[in-house]
Design a protein around this nucleic acid. Structure first.
Lengths: 187, 187
DNA sequence: ATCACTCTATACAGATTAGTATAATGGTGC
DNA sequence: GCACCATTATACTAATCTGTATAGAGTGAT
């Protein structure tokens, strides 16, 4: 079992978040990962493929983590929606939080026909749909509107946290989410 | 009257938004602006200086535009806060909207000691303080909390709009803002 | 021991980058 | 005409980038 592919993935993920994607060269990645370019290009045909794989992995990790938390710690569907931002806070404030990939990637690759941008956009929409799913299960009338608002707050909070670490933006995002959820529930 | 400096500024601003900052070379900027590198480096000592100037200009334009709108079209302080997101919507949906500079810049320059990141962070905070100012004038009790929440929604909406143009995120951001403002007013 | 296989080491190609040096061009004021 | 000025045109340096070519080192199986 190599684990080299995995090592390259996590190394690239960290560097992309801390240095930026375009600012991180392939040479830097392999140097930090303790391997060579030949190996990197064997597992990932190009830097673009590597970027896409990093995004996929990060998104999947987040979705799995969140889903497990919600499945294991809540019973009623309405409870999930209420506790959503509690877990998001836990995720964002955890020490190994390294940002949300698709938000940064879409900024670095603004062109709509770019594969990285397309995947980012797709992941953003996927997350919105996940909230939509939670909202409909909780019998929210305007599930579409609420899910869009909650994803707005999510992206804004992550953006703010990324802009200035430990800004406490998540706390206010949490109360804002609570207000919006309560408002949509009693309708 | 030259206007060449201005021309370079607006050209760079457009290219930075549509292609990304790091992905836009100095050669491209001068080619599109119809000038040469010598002139660019005469007005702006380095690419970093140019980036900073573009950010300053864009932020100032936005703040001036928003402030004028609010000053001219509202009378009472509480009205300003209510109409804030109406004008933000007008700004975002306008055809020559080219994104909010400091949001993208902070993504492309994640390192906190980077001058571009620092300016972005500073501008983000400045905008939050502007909302805070509006909130205190409107006699909102928890002005700090509300202004943070509204700036979250703003950044999230811009992010969403940038991710997928014409997503209608602004409309939902508007209603979310209304709910939060009303909630903070009747406290 | 030899084959097969993964990984390393290193050097390289070709393109692109930021920034500079130098000479020529064009217009304005006098 | 002449001097002054901003601008252009072009060529260059030196670094950096992605991606590849080639040869060698290590390991495990049979």
């Amino acid at each position: 079992m190599t684990g080299l592919r995995e090592k390259i993935l996590t190394t690239a993920s960290n560097l992309f978040q801390t240095q930026g994607i375009n600012s991180t060269g392939v040479d830097t990645i392999v140097a930090v990962a303790g391997t060579t370019k030949m190996t990197l290009y064997k597992y990932f045909g190009s830097k673009e493929v590597l970027i896409l794989e990093v995004l996929k992995q990060g998104h999947q990790d987040f979705q799995n983590w969140l889903n497990d938390k919600l499945s294991n710690n809540t019973k009623q569907p309405s409870e999930k929606l209420q506790k959503l931002f509690d877990y998001i806070e836990e995720w964002v404030t955890s020490p190994d939080f390294h940002g949300v990939g698709f938000i940064k990637a879409s900024a670095e690759f603004p062109q709509e026909d770019n594969p990285v941008h397309q995947l980012s956009s797709q992941q953003s929409q996927q997350f919105k749909q996940y909230i939509h799913h939670l909202a409909t299960e909780a019998n929210i009338k305007d599930a579409e509107g609420l899910s869009l608002q909650l994803s707005l707050i999510f992206e804004g909070a992550v953006q703010a946290e990324q802009m200035k670490r430990g800004s406490g933006a998540i706390k206010y995002a949490k109360t804002a989410a609570k207000i919006l959820i309560d408002g949509a529930s009693t309708q």
